[in-house]
Design a protein around this nucleic acid. Structure first.
Length: 275
DNA sequence: CCCCAGCCCTGGTCGC
DNA sequence: TGCGACCAGGGCTGGG
């Protein structure tokens, strides 16, 4: 569930880890590091000194001063909890999947109920290759005007499917894709290659706007997402279509519809977003 | 080559 | 109260 605003919120909360040295890494869940073995990853983490945390799309990057990085994808339910030296351990240890113990006594706990999340340690070239072949432009940094129009026209598929493809634009997931489509007045079922240049430009603007609002709200705590201090975001209170099937559209009063598109639940207003 | 169903996972919810 | 069915869905794989 964490999308760009949620991952960026987590990144910001981890900024204070810069300069910390990992004394010990504990990997409790063998799946976390697949295909690499947990023992190899733990050994690779030990002794590393953290540089400033980064983010690319929905990936969280904890770079080391030696050039390598811990590349984390939270998938659905991954979460970090930062603990100061001497603070009590996590309340729900059954979902604790990994733990970084720093020389300072601080700890970074990683929990993941559904165990979809991944941890990889990669060198600089591997990292760039890994991200480069999976991710398109970063929407809040360097997203050229017209970029979305080009990407959408290249293939014919439902708009929602096109936006969830991380090569179209990095970091957008179901929630923000559906909110942006609603704001742009475009149905998620609409074939991606039927948009005019004005519609594509509007959608690009609304994606940026939705992500920006989400970031300002500290992310959307729909189910399991929490910030690294355990607090909740506020974006869930501002959602206009996601999860609102049967409700009245805030803009026009029509009933919000739900339909599965490409295996994902889609929500939209049939009046504001005609097919 | 493209597209989509199915898979991985667990906890919460719903109906009986 | 108990239990099974179903749902949530990012990214990847394999079948058509």
């Amino acid at each position: 569930m964490p999308e760009l605003p949620e991952v960026e919120t987590i990144r910001r909360s981890l900024a204070g880890l810069e300069g910390e040295e990992i004394r010990t890494a504990l990997i409790h869940d063998g799946r976390l590091t697949r295909p690499a073995s947990p023992a190899v990853v733990a050994a690779g983490l030990a002794g590393a000194v953290l540089a400033a945390p980064r983010r690319r799309g929905k990936y969280l990057i904890l770079p080391f001063v030696d050039g390598r990085s811990l590349l984390v994808h939270l998938r659905m339910t991954g979460a970090f909890l930062s603990r100061g030296a001497g603070e009590a351990p996590v309340a729900d240890p059954s979902h604790l999947r990994a733990e970084l113990r720093f020389s300072s006594g601080r700890r970074l706990l990683y929990t993941d109920i559904r165990r979809f999340g991944t941890w990889q340690v990669l060198g600089p070239a591997e990292l760039e290759a890994h991200l480069g072949e999976r991710l398109g432009p970063e929407p809040l940094e360097d997203w050229p005007r017209g970029s979305l129009a080009t990407a959408l026209s290249r293939r014919r598929r439902p708009l929602l499917s096109a936006l969830l493809d991380q090569r179209t634009v990095a970091g957008v997931g179901t929630i923000y894709a559906l909110e942006a489509l609603h704001a742009a007045g475009l149905a998620p079922t609409r074939p991606s290659d039927t948009l005019g240049p004005e519609e594509s430009a509007r959608l690009q603007q609304e994606i940026i706007a939705a992500l920006t609002v989400g970031l300002e709200a500290g992310g959307a705590s729909i189910r399991d997402y929490r910030r690294a201090d355990g607090s909740r975001g506020r974006m869930q209170e501002r959602l206009r279509v996601y999860g609102r099937a049967g409700d009245a559209c805030a803009a026009c009063g029509a009933v919000i519809e739900r339909q599965t598109i490409g295996g994902r639940s889609a929500f939209w207003c049939p009046a504001c977003q005609p097919s």
